[in-house]
Design a protein around this nucleic acid. Structure first.
Lengths: 194, 194
DNA sequence: AATTTTTAAATGGTCATTTAAAAAAATGAC
DNA sequence: GTCATTTTTTTAAATGACCATTTAAAAATT
C-alpha cells in the first residue's frame, strides 16, 4: 500500500496551488516561488516532484482535462436519448464543479498559451476532439446532415465563448443559470430542424 | 506640416512589429528586443517612443479596437434594415482585414491578459460594451423581449468562440466562409422567432 | 548650432533551476 | 520497542540567464 503516499499528496497539493496561483497572477507572470508559497512549500520542492515549471503546467492542465472528462462520463451514464446525451455534454461543461471563476480563468490561460507550448497544444487538441466527437454522435440523430456541422460548430464555439466571458468576470459565476441558458440556446437551434 | 512625421511613422512600425512578434512568440514571453528586431529598431527606441513595454501593449490593443470599430462603422453605413445592420456587425468581426491568424492570435493574447492589467481590462470592456450595444439595438426589432438577451448573449459568445478557435489554427483562415457560417447561425436562431 | 532620433552599453532586478546539506521517515536487526 | 542505517523529502543558498529600463553619447535632421 502507501508506498507513494507522500508523493501523491504533494502532486495534489502543488497542482491545486498552481490552479490558484495562475488564476490570481496570470500564466504570463506567475513564479515558482508564488506557486510554492500557495502550497506552503519551497520552489525547489516543485522541481523535485515535477522536474520543471513547464512540466508542472502540463500536469495541471492534464488534471483539468480529467475533471472535464469525468463530469462528461458521469452525466452520460444516466442519459437515455440522443437529446438527453447532447444536454449531458452541455451540462458537464457548466457543472458546479467546473464552472467556477478560478477554473474558467485558468482554462483560458492555458488556452492562450497552447499555441506556444507543444505539450499544452497536444492536450488542448485531445480535449477538443473529444467534445467534437460527442456532439457529432448525438447530433446525427437530431439534425439533418447538411446543417449538422454548422450547428455543431456553433454550439462548440458558443460554449467556448461562455467560458471566455466567464474568465473575465469578477463576480461569482452561476453554473445552474449557465446550464439553463446553454440548454435554451441549443434548443433554439434544434427547433428549426423538426 | 510634417512636424510629427517621424514620430507617427515609428508608432505605426512599432505597433505593427508588436502584433507580429506577440503572434509569433506569445504575450507571455515576447521581449522588447524581439519586437524591436521585428521593426528593425533597437529596444531603447521603443522606450523612447512609448515609455514602457506595458504602454506599448496598451497602444497596440488600442489599435486593434480602432480597426474593429472602423470595420463596424463602414458596414453600418450601407445597411438599411435592422436585419442588415445585425449582419453588418457580424461581418465586421469576420472582415478580411480583421479575421487573420495574426490578429485572432494577438486578440486572444490580450484577452487572456486583460484580467491582470488594468489598462487592457479597460479597453476590453469598452469594446465588449460597444458590440453589446449594437446587438441590443438591432435585436430589438427582430426578437421578442423575453428571448432577446439570451439570443444576444448566444451570438456574442459564439463570435468570441470562433475567434478563440481561429487563434489555435495554424492554417490560413477563410473570412468569407466565417461570415457565411456566422450569418447562417444567426438566421438559425432568428428563424424560431417569426 | 540646436533639436530630435538612435543605439551600445551599463544597471539593477527577477527568476528557474541546481546544489549541497539538513531533516524526516522508513527499514530492519536486535 | 529501540536504535543505527538507509532512503526519501525538504529547503537555503548559489548559480547563471535573461530582460526592461536608463544613461550617455553619437548620428541625423532641422
Amino acid at each position: 500500500m502507501g508506498r507513494t503516499r507522500i508523493r501523491d499528496i504533494r502532486h495534489e497539493e502543488l497542482i491545486s496551488a498552481t490552479i490558484t496561483a495562475v488564476h490570481k497572477r496570470g500564466y504570463a507572470v506567475v513564479t515558482m516561488a508564488e506557486i510554492a508559497a500557495e502550497a506552503g512549500a519551497s520552489a525547489a520542492s516543485i522541481n523535485y516532484y515535477f522536474g520543471s515549471k513547464e512540466k508542472l503546467m502540463e500536469a495541471t492542465m492534464r488534471r483539468l482535462l480529467t475533471l472535464l472528462k469525468q463530469a462528461m462520463l458521469e452525466r452520460y451514464a444516466t442519459a437515455k436519448s440522443p437529446h438527453e446525451r447532447l444536454m449531458a455534454v452541455i451540462d458537464a461543461n457548466f457543472s458546479d464543479r467546473l464552472f467556477t471563476n478560478e477554473q474558467c480563468s485558468i482554462w483560458i490561460q492555458f488556452w492562450a498559451n497552447a499555441p506556444y507550448a507543444e505539450s499544452l497544444q497536444r492536450l488542448h487538441r485531445i480535449n477538443r476532439s473529444r467534445v467534437t466527437a460527442h456532439f457529432r454522435a448525438e447530433l446525427r440523430a437530431l439534425v439533418a446532415e447538411d446543417r449538422r456541422e454548422t450547428l455543431r460548430e456553433a454550439l462548440q464555439c458558443y460554449m467556448d465563448g461562455v467560458w471566455l466571458e466567464a474568465a473575465q468576470s469578477d463576480t461569482p459565476l452561476n453554473p445552474a443559470q449557465a446550464r439553463k441558458e446553454a440548454r435554451e440556446v441549443a434548443d433554439l437551434m434544434l427547433v428549426s430542424q423538426d
